[in-house]
Design a protein around this nucleic acid. Structure first.
Length: 465
RNA sequence: GCGCCCGUAGCUCAACCGGAUAGAGCACCAGACUUCGAAUCUGGGGGUUAGGGGUUCAAAUCCCUUCGGGCGCGCCA
């Protein structure tokens, strides 16, 4: 959400923005995920007579068991890292699509090619879920980048070769971290990137002991790819748990883009702590307290979720109290702003339906707008371009939310002044020129609110009902 | 042990990256609907900006320190 709003904000401020999503579909973690999916595949397959008939070797032993996680690990001598139910449908799909075709000939574990097939299917299924969540949030990306595809295309290796050509890659030994030395620490030479030359605290490994790339190495490829596509500035939005990762990536980008430096800004967002009635909510399906983004959006609505999330600095620790958000959904500031917009539109509709509806509001003379409340609103509107620019430069979309709240407040005040003093109403039959000026002011207010809500990805409603 | 982020009203958060009396919302109290829609408005109580020290004409903001919270610290992603 922060990235989406920030991209919108930069676009509003005049940048030509491309929103990209990096899919971490390579590495040991994903390999482990694929293995778990294969386990689910066996469960689905062996539930059929054909599947049972095709089983041999270790698979046969597994077929005769309760087919749980422990039985799988015992039969194949393979530890599973993922036990969640969410891979069950993936396993069923694999069984339906391939039948017994994904079984190993010797009845053991699948070979590399088969596992790669499973991995691809699994990642695709996960991405369907992620895209659904993104869509529910109203987040759209222009580009999806696959880590595995970049690696396969040799992008990461070329980027590292580029760094090596600059003399920034060497074989070396890292000191163990002070204080808490891991039990299994053993000193060994590694392929390192000299990130300390660009302000990092220590040099960082590029290869694992088995020779494959670290996550960092592949991510260097990811950034090299962005540089190659000619972006003048890079902005990343990461969770706060990646804070220690910022310096090394900035070092890598600085090294890759020397000669034509491209800045890399990293916006860190704190993990949202979900709270219900003062107690932290555990993400546990078993305890029945599992809370997904989809649940949240369904309960309070997309606009309220987005506005609440975006009405705070990204790097502040925050609590999201479910009870309060649901209970206060009526009092949520988002409705305050949307109500102001709806009132603007209501007035403008009335203006248009007048017998002698004033035309060409943009050219209306504004001298008649002299009331303190009118001037306050005008001043606020005049600050809009500056606010957008400052918020964009600071990478702080939350400033837009606060601006909109203040702007809506100014408008509501003016509206209520008109209830006490009828000469301050927007539409006055006896004063066509004053009406024209005020409708111009209302139109400008509506335009700015609409523009700001667009940045936040919140709907500017025509009426509240 | 080291590094990064943070600590502001009872609660959730602001404060235009050194400026004037630190502001909103929620909650609480008291008022305003024969209105272009009261999902709004008006007024009120509530702060030693975690504590201490320093720099400055000026500090929530910068520096030091103590306390408290979050995150991170090779072959995870």
């Amino acid at each position: 959400m922060v990235g989406d709003a920030l991209a919108n904000l930069l676009g509003k401020a005049g940048w030509d923005v491309t929103k990209e999503y990096y899919i971490n579909d390579a590495g040991a973690q994903v390999q482990a995920l694929a293995m778990a999916a294969w386990w689910r595949y066996l469960q689905a397959l062996l539930a059929t007579p054909e599947g049972l008939a095709a089983a041999s070797g270790a698979t046969r032993g597994f077929a005769g068991s309760a087919r749980g996680r422990e039985e799988f690990e015992a039969s194949f001598g393979q530890a599973l890292q993922y036990g969640g139910d969410y891979l069950v449908p993936v396993g069923q799909a694999l069984a339906a699509e391939h039948g017994a075709g994904l079984l190993a000939a010797d009845g053991g574990l699948p070979d590399a090619a088969t596992l790669a097939q499973v991995r691809q299917r699994t990642v695709a299924a996960m991405m369907v879920e992620i895209r659904a969540d993104l869509a529910a949030l109203g987040v759209r990306h222009d580009v999806f980048i696959s880590e595995a595809a970049l690696v396969a295309a040799g992008v990461a290796d070329r980027a590292i070769a580029d760094l090596a050509a600059k003399g920034l890659v060497y074989e070396g030994v890292l000191e163990p971290p002070k204080g808490k030395t891991p039990d299994d620490w053993e000193t060994r030479p590694q392929t390192l990137f000299a990130s300390t030359r660009f302000g990092d605290d220590v040099d960082r490994p590029l290869r694992k002991s088995d020779g494959s790339n670290t996550y960092f190495a592949n991510d260097i490829g990811n950034h090299a790819d962005k540089l190659a596509r000619g972006f003048a500035e890079l902005v990343q939005v990461w969770g706060a748990d990646h804070g220690g990762y910022v310096k090394r990536m900035q070092a890598a980008v600085a090294a890759l883009s020397d000669g034509h430096p491209v800045p890399l800004d990293v916006v860190l967002t704190q993990i949202v702590k979900v709270v219900k009635g003062g107690e932290p909510v555990r993400m546990s399906k078993r305890a029945g307290t599992y809370v997904t983004l989809a649940d949240l959006i369904e309960e309070v609505g997309r606009d309220a979720v987005r506005f609440t999330m975006l009405t705070r600095k990204a790097d502040a620790q925050m609590e999201f109290d479910l009870d309060k958000v649901v209970e206060q959904s009526r009092e949520n500031p988002v409705f305050y702003v949307q109500y102001a917009h709806a009132r603007c539109r209501s007035v403008l509709r009335s203006g248009e339906s007048m017998a002698d509806a004033p035309a060409d509001l943009a050219a209306a003379p504004l001298e008649s707008l002299t009331d303190a409340a009118e001037l306050a609103l005008i001043r606020r509107l005049a600050a809009w371009p500056r606010t957008v620019e400052a918020a964009a430069l600071a990478r702080e979309p939350h400033r837009i939310a606060f601006f909109l709240h203040d702007l809506a407040g100014d408008f509501h005040v003016l509206w209520n002044r008109g209830r006490e003093d009828t000469t301050l109403r927007f539409i006055r039959g006896d004063e066509p020129e004053a009406t024209r000026a005020r409708l111009a002011l209302v139109a400008a207010t509506a335009t700015v609110i609409r523009s700001g809500l667009q940045v936040m990805g919140v709907t500017p409603v025509e009426e509240m009902r």
